[in-house]
């Protein structure tokens, strides 16, 4: 290896915005605040949800039953979101992702099923604050007020699509493609402007099944990427 090379580092899609550098502890005056849940791992699971063998394989590996339409389930392995009758998305930690993937590939052997790594292609934005639903209503036409914990749906936000899942009463997660993340963020920040929007420091995970995936998951952190 050439001496020109250095340690690999990973960058999350919103890293160029330096959200971490702007983040503050949100106060009650901040009607809405958000931040990126950086560098989670994402695995797309393909398989017919009506196929019991496939469902069994997912349950064996992830400890999760397949979610119903428009919903998600969560556990130690992460959050499993329904995307279509033959597609689910597993949000998990980078720590667990490789072994989960290998185990799923093994469990899917002989089945009409597949696991596709999307870890580079997706990211998650966490939105919280008293006006979080209002902010979503500025961004899209879905009836966000009706979205309850346990639900995760894909819909249109401005000129892109994203998945929105309600974790608990505190906040929602928006799962978006890497190349649209900056746009979605800009749309969110603009929509939240009347509500004293701020970039907030992500809370300790608590009951939120996505935030708890993040802890310790960013093996390669900010210090590494400034090495260039």
């Amino acid at each position: 290896m050439s001496d020109a090379l250095f340690q690999p580092y990973a960058r999350s899609p919103l890293d160029p915005l330096d959200l971490a550098g702007q983040a503050v502890r949100p106060s009650p005056e901040n009607g809405a605040w958000a931040n990126e849940v950086r560098l989670l791992a994402y695995l797309t699971l393909r398989g017919d949800s009506a196929d019991p063998a496939y469902a069994r394989a997912v349950r064996t590996v992830c400890g999760l039953s397949l979610p119903d339409a428009g919903r998600y389930v969560s556990g130690v392995a992460g959050v499993l979101l329904w995307r279509s009758p033959n597609e689910c998305l597993l949000l998990t930690s980078r720590r667990q992702a490789a072994s989960l993937r290998v185990a799923l590939v093994e469990a899917f052997a002989g089945l009409l099923a597949e696991v596709v790594d999307q870890s580079g292609g997706l990211t998650t934005v966490y939105l919280a604050g008293a006006e979080q639903v209002t902010v979503l209503r500025h961004m899209g036409g879905y009836d966000f007020g009706s979205l309850e914990p346990g639900q995760a749906i894909a819909t249109v936000f401005g000129k892109t699509a994203a998945v929105v899942m309600r974790a608990d009463a505190h906040g929602v997660h928006l799962i978006v493609r890497r190349s649209f993340a900056a746009y979605l963020w800009a749309l969110l920040a603009r929509s939240a402007r009347p509500y004293a929007f701020t970039v907030g420091r992500l809370p300790a995970a608590g009951t939120d099944p996505v935030l708890c995936l993040q802890e310790g998951a960013t093996v390669l952190d900010r210090q590494d990427r400034v090495a260039v």
Binding site: P8, Y9, S119
Partner: peptide
Amino acid sequence: NVEASYGDYVWQSVLAAGK
């Protein structure tokens, strides 16, 4: 082709290796 999270790193690596 690499996972996009490492795209920036690989691009930099290629530039360095090709210098």
